[in-house]
Write a protein that binds this DNA or RNA. Structure first.
Lengths: 186, 186, 186, 186
DNA sequence: TGTTAAGCGAGACGGTACGTCGCGTCTTAAT
DNA sequence: ATTAAGACGCGACGTACCGTCTCGCTTAACA
């Protein structure tokens, strides 16, 4: 690994760790520099400002996602969410989510990074929907984009408002409503 | 109005204006003090820190919400959303939302204020659901809490990811899916 | 003493000490802040930048100067220089002098401060010259400004080039030449 | 010219130009490297640090000096100073002088270089003095070193304090006093 | 004439200090 | 007793140069 890439990686790792341990309020370029052994200057050579580093640190905490294919919409979604869910703490998840969502509102580059990260989630979901449409489970007139809103939205809302504990029963209930919405023919 | 209340009001008004004009990144206690003519000290006497002032400034931008009663679930929801929606700019809405959501993750008081604000929205929706259940439109076993997630979530998600322009057709489509989900009997 | 003046004084004292101990290369706003207990921000509230603080620290190391009146030019100058001379180390004197002289070349405000400090020295000398002219020791056509150049210059040059140890014999010799120059009638 | 010498020369030329155009505050190894096309690494291979490069850049702006021989002390000195004087701007002269004088205070190598440059001036002057002593114009007991202080000092002082415009009348006046000091028998 | 080692450019790195911004606290004088 | 005014301590920001460190590539001298 090139010298440059090594420094970058060390900084990013330290940033990710720091983020996990101290959360966004404790996330500081100065601290990242100190713990990583990478000079602050170098960090700023790789990221234009603290928020960008934060965004990448958040983004690289999002695991790569599977695109299950169980044969039914409900099975696929259930598989997807059971694969995705479990962060150590929902609160720190909420904090990171909101922190980055916020930063994205005033920085186009962060917004772009966020979109990329989001699409890593929405992509599989869209595929799931389209497979279901191919099978006839979901009517063809349903716009997959909106379907994604319907699938992701309720979970996001529940997490951000702190009203979801991600107990299986809750997830089941939500998924049931969502699947019903998608499969009902009108 | 008491002298104290007057200062508080002036500060809050200035804060709200500042928030609207410059957004969260430009929202500063120092600036609020300057534009309002209220001393910084005084502001800190009324709010424990900047985020609390911000939270209140955001919260008082949220208009009081109606609880429509059109006789059908779809009608009620449509009425509700058409009454609520369109702020000047979706972007500034997203910014304020994320900003406060973020602040709420590390400050319990703000979290409480946020919950209060959120419940001003979720309350009417819950009522709408319960009315629909009373009419038999929505099965009784549906937990109104989860129903609220289903109703609010998709819109929030679409707004935060910048994928909703709130054109009537989009809103219709989403509402269609949501209503289908809620009314389907399984 | 007002709070503000107190902070200023503490910073200035620390700056002066630091300058004496570590010289100009070790003179740092950050260090002044640390040793004085005055916040860096506050230092910058009192001085526009590091050089200005430096200039003041130097300037306040220059003791107030007497204007002797012994009745003869040579006696006056001898008294003046014997009162002024002995800094702990000629090297640190040279360093401070050159440092400030240099800073003055690119900063008008420092130049002004320097001029003030210089005039604290040139003033008494000019007076000495004028007294000597009144007594007839020095011809009337001699411009006191030039006379000051003649009096101060050789010492400055010798100090800056490190060729003066300020042994009495050296000083005597220089003063002898200077007095001769001033008193000769042409 | 060897490849190495060529790079050295290019760097030095660029340094000199940069110094003339932007003065010491704008004098930067980085900028020298950029404008000269010589890599920073190479520059550091030729000079141990920025100050040494600066010193050499200054030093090579000092023209070689004549040792006039007009037959009289006053004539010689007048010839010497008229040959030397007028740089484009006295201010930039003062800046370079003070800058190097300052650097010399904390770096022995620069001090040595400075001494060399200074001696290029003091040498001729000393010769002038000694010739004058041989002719009997200047008493034998005068130490040529001190005489040099007397000759150079006033001009240096006047330049550094910005009180000399080098108009002929000023120079004449100073020279008059200096010559008087040197030739007076006591 | 081919080989090799010294020297070069390019450019990132660790580091120190800079000067700035905003926070939340504190003091003082006026209302 | 509460306010306006404004300085303060603090922590982090992002920047500028410093002097160092690989890295390939050139080039000149030696085999």
């Amino acid at each position: 690994m090139s010298r440059s890439a090594e420094a970058r990686q060390k900084a990013l790792t330290a940033a990710t760790d720091l983020l996990r341990v101290r959360g966004i309020p404790g996330f500081t370029v100065e601290e990242v520099a100190k713990t990583s052994g990478v000079a602050k200057t170098t960090i700023y050579r790789h990221w234009p400002n603290a928020d960008h580093l934060l965004a990448e640190a958040v983004s690289c905490q999002i695991a790569p996602l599977p695109t299950p294919n169980t044969g039914s919409l409900e099975g696929d979604l259930r598989a997807f969410f059971s694969a995705v869910v479990p962060p150590e703490s929902l609160e720190s998840l909420a904090q990171m989510l909101t922190g980055v969502l916020y930063a994205a509102t005033y920085d186009p580059a962060i917004r772009a990074a966020l979109e990329e990260a989001v699409s890593r989630r929405t992509g599989p979901i869209k595929t799931i929907i389209e497979l279901a449409q191919a099978r006839g489970e979901v009517p063809a007139y349903v716009d997959p984009e909106r379907a994604v809103d319907l699938v992701e939205g309720p979970f996001l809302f529940a997490v951000l408002t702190g009203r979801l504990t991600f107990q299986p029963s809750e997830v089941d209930e939500l998924l049931g409503l969502i699947v019903a919405g998608l499969t009902a023919v009108r």
